[in-house]
Design a protein around this nucleic acid. Structure first.
Lengths: 239, 239
DNA sequence: CATAGACAGATCGTATGACAATCATTTTGA
DNA sequence: TCAAAATGATTGTCATACGATCTGTCTATG
């Protein structure tokens, strides 16, 4: 955000492995693979045009992140979470984002606050017009701004992990219908509390936001449990 | 803990990869490799007698866990954390264990409470007699009991990750001298609060415990920063 | 007809060997 | 003395191989 951006020639510090990991993460996040889908190594190798060696390293990482599950001698599948696990995820996420909100108020620089407000402004705009995919992007930018201002890199790591799992849940519940507009208001509460410099209120607003998302997810998941209407998605091209 | 234990034949579901990961984790935890030490693939392959393929998968996982850092084209090293990062780690750990404590009070079964108290009893005994390595073990058992009773598997995952990082810190600060006896009292506070069924007090006690560990670590780290007395460890045999 | 067992195909787990790219160090040359 | 080139070590990635294990099918038998 400062003027001293990096001029440096960005020699591709991205190893191919990182690209593969990101590619898979993105593919799963976009619903190209649904939770429970098998990820057959040979197929993925062909799709991504990388060696099995590399692909397996990538899958190993994603397993630690909780995005895929590797079943011994059966192979990797996109992680599937039970309703109970979903609850656990949201519960933890609430705690972490609450902490992020509190830390933000206590430590964020003026620049970081401005960045957050900018992200929020963009978000409210996007929520009226753009596609649902774009909404996810701006929302992610909002979160990035929030966690960056919390000045705790380990918290950032953990939130990334949790959000990966939430992505899976979002895929299982097939997005929330009327959810997004409500969400904007909740995020507004966060921003307002931050502007008031009220750490406790910010934390509370962060928690509430997560909780309301959790409530919707739980509702959909429990509906699905009683009425197992399996929807198969067709598209599945990578690259 | 219930009578309905699993009778099932536990065919070695442990893939060799898991063994390698654990082996490396343990080796680092025991100080066989110090933070910053290079982990040369070929050497590790020989020590562990596994293929490079497998070793690299294991290192990939450990990188996600934050136990090793892989520097592009230089190779993996045991993770090194700055004082700031150490602070971040403890801060997060405090939040997570606070949550674990609260959840334990709210949800633990009678059996889980008994297990925790048993672990605590064993711990107080060990703190008087056994070796420092044994102390770590019983302490770990205590924590396992605590997190298990919290009934949040994702929280358990995250605590595992954090504790991995704490292990690294413990290795950098070379254990805390008078620390352990103080620690027993703090854990006692946790147990007492749990017995009173006081969630808030438990959470508070958990946080305090982490905080006092953090204080000592910070002290040692800052000392080390001013007086960079690098201590090299010799032993380094695996298997 | 039902069921157990045998067989075959698919896929994973792991190992080996190879080679270019890159980093670190030493040697060479000015 | 110092820059430049050569050397060696190590990583990043790939192709290939093969036994172990799972899954589904087919056959034979009761």
């Amino acid at each position: 955000m400062t003027a001293q951006q990096n001029l440096r020639v960005v020699r591709p510090l991205v190893s191919l492995k990182k690209l593969v990991v990101e590619s898979l993460r993105a593919a799963i996040g976009e619903g190209r693979f649904a939770p429970g889908d098998r990820l057959i190594e040979r197929e993925l190798c062909e799709m991504l045009d990388v060696s099995r060696t590399l692909l397996r390293e990538a899958l190993s990482q994603l397993e630690v992140e909780g995005i895929v599950q590797i079943i011994p001698h059966k192979g990797p599948i996109v992680a599937v979470y039970t309703a109970a696990e979903a609850n656990a995820i949201y519960e933890l996420r609430a705690t972490l984002e609450e902490m992020a909100g509190r830390c933000f108020v206590e430590r964020a620089t003026a620049g970081e606050r401005a960045a957050l407000e900018a992200a929020y402004a963009e978000l409210t705009r996007a929520y009226r017009t753009k596609s649902s995919k774009n909404r996810l992007e701006v929302k992610q930018k909002f979160y990035s701004a929030l966690t960056a201002g919390a000045h705790n890199p380990v918290l950032e790591d953990m939130l990334r992990l949790i959000h990966g799992r939430v992505t899976i849940l979002r895929a299982t519940t097939l997005a929330e219908p009327g959810r997004l507009s409500g969400s904007a208001a909740e995020l507004g509460e966060i921003v307002k509390a931050i502007q008031r410099n009220d750490a406790a209120a910010t934390a509370e607003a962060c928690r509430r936001h997560v909780m309301s998302a959790a409530a919707i997810a739980e509702q959909i998941l429990s509906e699905e449990a009683t009425n197992p209407g399996r929807k198969k998605r067709p598209a599945r091209r990578l690259i």
